[in-house]
Design a binder for these strands. Structure first.
Lengths: 192, 192
DNA sequence: GCGTACATGTAATGTGTTACATGATTTA
DNA sequence: TAAATCATGTAACACATTACATGTACGC
């Protein structure tokens, strides 16, 4: 039941439509929550019915109209209750690491390809996150910004995203290298 | 539908009962897949029905009997098909980072407590993983083991777990410090 | 006798994913 | 005119979580 809190937290950054949230949650790991587009539309409907967000129609030229949402006072209260409650443990599920775990009975070639692809995706996200950090802190350096900035939440969560993506990239690259070298010099008994 | 592959991968490490898998998946992030106990029992039943694992009754003294499972040839084939298919993107969901994202409208005190608690948990897991790495590589150094070891999959996935837990620990500590210092010296306009 | 660890499940509920459906407007 | 982006949803299905249920055996 905490998709709603993730949505509320995302809406603190400003008014957004369902579609815009889709994009934010697609980059997603930035705020450590993944959600599919359809989940977001459904959740926004529920949140509005519960009075935690307020919707507003925005008429656009050249594009379909959209509804943008803001967090209400009740929404902030809900977030406060959520933050005070004990945090659930991190939920993580990753195909790729499972495959690597099983690599000894598998053909390593497709895995190496997938690791390199994932490394690239991670590098791209990292670049995106670092750009966002720069934008958030403006001309201040990080220390000063974290001491004096008015809004540091998104910056701090983005730092977490950076750490994750950096490690993901490096792990993928080093794992791909290890597997590649073993394929090139199979100095051990072949299994299967 | 890849809980089954995570289970198959875990069973490559040796015969395990449902209960034992419960413990492995509870430490869990080591192989980057979280699953609740009830999921595992259900999945094992299905896997056995599909012929991907073989169960064997183990009679114990002083304890209830248990059924342990091994991956069959069909199971390995299933894993191979899984590994060859494109990997799904990493799925991550973390309450705690969502809370930090929203910290600017919240009371930071309970959050700081949660961050420190999480840091401790991460440190404990890291220690566990590092012990496991030592056990897996034996007396060889890492480079030699990765070049010459016969079974490196679990080692590589455990390295990923180490990276994640190390970063989680450091991020939690540095975020808690930042929030703590701001509470101590509120040199900015108070909101709300 | 009580709590903890071992050991395994069923059933109900809640959440998330996938497929389908629609339609405007912009760029190639 | 075909594809891409913007924009929002419904419905069916798959999956995960929670609560409940049961029972052995060990150590305190």
């Amino acid at each position: 039941m905490s998709l709603r809190h993730a949505v509320l937290a995302a809406l603190l950054d400003g008014e957004h439509s369902g579609y815009q949230l889709t994009k934010l949650f697609d980059v997603g790991v930035s705020n450590f929550w993944y959600a599919a587009p359809q989940q977001l539309y459904a959740e926004l409907t529920k949140l509005e019915a519960d009075g935690l967000v307020a919707g507003r129609e925005v008429v656009q030229q050249g594009r379909p109209n959209k509804r943008v949402f803001t967090v209400t006072e009740a929404g902030v209260a809900e977030l406060a209750a959520f933050a005070a409650a004990p945090a659930k443990p991190l939920l993580i599920r990753d195909d790729l690491v499972v495959k690597v775990h099983a690599v000894d009975v598998l053909d390593p070639a497709p895995l190496i390809a997938q690791l390199l692809e994932r490394a690239e995706q991670a590098a791209a996200k990292l670049a995106l996150f670092e750009k966002m950090l720069k934008r958030l802190r403006g001309d201040r350096d990080e220390g000063a910004f974290l001491r004096e900035g008015e809004r540091i939440g998104p910056y701090l969560s983005c730092l977490a995203g950076c750490r994750l993506e950096r490690e993901m990239r490096d792990w993928c690259l080093s794992t791909a290298r290890t597997l590649g070298e073993r394929s090139a010099h199979p100095g051990r008994t072949t299994r299967s």
